[in-house]
């Protein structure tokens, strides 16, 4: 890799020299170098605080996102309703914050579940090798190649009570949140699994693993105590990147009426009716999507910045 810096056709920009510092110090300097990623981290933090605190603050002022007021539909912004009202006369700003709470919750918990499943499969495939490995990799290839959205639609449309699951999963409101999280994780694990497998393969034959094995550590202990901590960076990066993708998947399903069920708002289902009234109230179609767009792009840029900062090879920026 030393030759990379002298690649003849590329002009590689200067980045802070990172030698002679501890790994954490180096991580921070590299991360700050990626200013846009820092900006995105702040944006995400702001959004999270806003959607957590906002609705509570609104309630203190006697505003909520559920009260329907049919005499005040699609009102323009004005005093007491900074962004106006939606097609049922509900306050748009409060609803955006409540919807964001659901969307971000689905994104983050879905990403965590995805990371757990993907890590387990990646560790098993990479460490066990042989038949287990080729089975899981074939499965991964198949899942990646499939047209996911049509399949997600089928899965979202099935009646889970026929599977013997409690009707809590079938119901409206929070039941639909659990369902969506499980559904997206069911298909979302492939990226993490591939990365983890590749990382495990690169670690597996190193001396410290041989030493642990020689000292009598079992496969579970080696995988969890020795390999896992050493492959944390790709897992962190992939999890950050998958938050955005999961939020997109949730929003599409909710938009199509198969995800989060109203009256519980999400940025996706707030757009379901927006298309019909796009001529009267285009603002209702703009706001939820703009916030979703900002959140997803922030997650993706943050993930990219983390990758830059955590990648020990440093100069390679994919």
């Amino acid at each position: 890799m030393a030759a990379d810096a002298e690649a003849p056709l590329t002009r590689v920009g200067r980045r802070p020299n990172a030698t002679g510092q501890g790994p954490w110090r180096r991580f921070w300097r590299r991360f700050l170098w990626h200013r846009l990623a820092v900006l995105c981290a702040w944006l995400l933090l702001f959004l999270i605080v806003a959607v957590v605190v906002g609705p509570a603050l609104g309630a203190a002022f006697g505003l909520d996102g559920q009260t329907v007021n049919l005499f005040d539909r699609m009102a323009p912004p004005g005093p007491g309703q900074p962004l106006g009202t939606d097609e049922l006369g509900r306050d748009l700003l409060i609803r955006l914050m409540e919807g964001g709470r659901v969307s971000l919750l689905v994104g983050i918990s879905g990403a965590l579940l995805t990371a757990v499943i993907g890590t387990a499969i990646g560790l098993a495939a990479g460490y066990a090798g042989g038949r287990t490995d080729s089975f899981f990799m074939r499965l991964t290839d198949a899942v990646i190649a499939l047209p996911l959205l049509p399949l997600l639609i089928v899965l979202a449309a099935i009646d889970v009570t026929k599977l013997g699951l409690p009707s809590a999963f079938a119901g409206d409101g929070w039941g639909s949140v659990y369902r969506i999280v499980v559904l997206v994780a069911l298909f979302g694990w492939t990226t993490v699994a591939r990365l983890v497998r590749a990382a495990v393969l690169s670690q597996k034959e190193r001396d410290y693993i041989r030493a642990a094995r020689a000292l009598g550590a079992g496969p579970m202990r080696i995988a969890l105590r020795h390999i896992l901590p050493n492959i944390a960076s790709p897992i962190i990066v992939a999890t950050t990147l998958s938050i955005g993708n999961i939020m997109l998947a949730e929003s599409v399903l909710s938009f199509l009426g198969l995800g989060i069920q109203p009256p519980l708002p999400s940025w996706g289902n707030m757009l379901t009716n927006a298309q019909e009234i796009i001529w009267q109230a285009p603002a209702l179609a703009i706001w939820p999507g703009a916030l979703l767009f900002a959140t997803v792009i922030a997650c993706n840029i943050l993930g990219d910045g983390l990758q830059d900062a955590l990648d020990p090879r440093g100069d390679l920026r994919h």
């Binding site: 599409v252 927006a274 999507g289 792009i297």
Partner: peptide, 15 residues
Amino acid sequence: AFAGFSVPSFWLGLI
């Protein structure tokens, strides 16, 4: 490019 794969498909259509 980031904008391209981060934008919600249906929202881009609506815009």
